[in-house]
Amino acid sequence: MNNCDTYLLHLSAEEQTRQYNNMDFDRIYKKYSKYIFRYSCRFLSGKEDAENIVHDTFIAFMNAGDRFDAEKDPLPYLYTIARNRCISMLRRRAVESRQDYISLVSAEYEPPLNISGIDIRNMLRKALGHMSPKVRETFVMSRYQGMTNKEIAQSLGISERGVEERMKKAMLELRKHFKDYL
C-alpha cells in the first residue's frame, strides 16, 4: 500500500462522495437532454413546451446538485423532476384544454416501469412475434407506417371494423407481455 491508499482509508464516507462540478453538468446535459425532451413530448404537444421543461429540469437539477453523488446515474432523478414539471404545467392548462387534461391524467396515473431499455425492445419483439401475422401487419401499418384505419382497410381489403378489431388484439398482446413490469 502506498501513501495514497492510506490517505483514502482515512477519509470519511461523506468526503468520499464526489460532488458535481460545472463540467459534470455540461456532460450530463449533452448526454441526457434528448431523453428528457422525448419524455416531455409524451405529455406536451408543443415542441417549445417540451424545450421549456428540459430547461427547467436541468436548472432544478443543477440547483439541487450539491446533494448528489456525482458517481451515481442522474437519469432517474432527471425524469422525476421532468415529470413533476410536466404535471405542474398540465395542471394549469387542464382547466382550459381537454386534451391537456387527458395528458395530465396519463402523466399522473402512469404505473412505474420496472424494465431496462434493452429488455423493453426484447419484449416488444417477442410481443410482435406472438401476434398473428394479420394482427401484426395491421399494427405495423398503423403504428409505424402512419396509415389511418381507412387507408389500412383499403390496402388490406378489409373493413375498418376489421382493422379496429385487429388493433385491439395487438394492444392486448402488448399488455400480456408487459403486465409483469407495469
Binding site: Y32, Y35, P76, Y79, P111, P112, L113, S116, I118, I120
Partner: peptide
C-alpha cells in the same frame, strides 16, 4: 401529427439500468 419523437429514444436511455417513471428508483 406524426411527430418525430414517436420513434425511439426515451425508453432506451439507460442501456443496462432500469428506469422508473414514478417516485421509486430501481437499479438493476
Amino acid at each position: 401529427r406524426k411527430k418525430f419523437w414517436l420513434r425511439t429514444g426515451y425508453f432506451s436511455a439507460a442501456a443496462a439500468v432500469a428506469v422508473l417513471l414514478a417516485v421509486n428508483i430501481f437499479l438493476m
